[in-house]
Amino acid sequence: MTFGKYNNYTTIIHRLDSRIKLIALISFFVILFLPYGTGYMNLVFYGIALILLFILSIISKASFISLFRSLKGIWVMVLFLLIISLLFANSNSGDIAFSIYELDIYYSTIINVSFVLLRLIAILTASNIFSSTTKPMDMTYALEWFFYPLKLIKIPIHKFAMAISLALRFVPTITMECQRVIKAQASRGVDYNQGRLKEKFKALTSMIIPLFISSFMKSGELADAMEARGYDPDSKRTRYKVYHFGLKDVIAILILVIILAFFITACCFKFDLFSYLGVDLPKLS
């Protein structure tokens, strides 16, 4: 199971209108980039957002394992962020957490790094939910719908939408093709996992070239097939599946608005929970 691959369950999230899901995704991105006052409050609110996303993940049966597997490389990121934060002195103020030899590590650095991390995990979780519950075709439908205003200034969005939907449509096909090529070459003794770098490179070309050739052939054939069935990029198109807003969609919008309102209010008031409760935390600046 790969990260973000559509899974064919029928949970409530799967059945929601794809436009709402897209708005929800964007709203969560907004929530994750709003400032909530102090660094501690940022942590708290990003944490809340992350918990909400985890709940959504469970409801939508999006695969956690693949998500965490894709986070394996995150430690490199943490190290990188730490080094960057240490190099830029202006974030190094306030109380010192601990020092390694001459190097002082500040609380603010740790907090900064951790909320960037939280944000990253949350973004990945949100994208994972969206892409594993929304069929590629529905995604393009949502995109096309949102870009509708551009039609008024004569931008051929339906052509773009067709291109995107075709590209998405061919991702699984090419993945399958790729596996076939790998198998065919493996029977000829190619080992994609072992060997020196030069051998690996050679092994890679033995996979990529057949893949390119079959993709070009496929695209040519597809174009012919579309033309043979009378596809005209400039004519008005109808839809096989017509989308209707249902009660569940309305409820979903209401919930989304409530969540968004909560976070925006928190952002506007910059309410400092910790000083209100009188908790003494290390100074950040």
Binding site: R180, V181, A184, S187, R188, T205, P210
Partner: peptide, 13 residues
Amino acid sequence: VGIVFQFPEYQLF
């Protein structure tokens, strides 16, 4: 054991 697949395009490069 050598396998020849159905479509030769998959292995010529």
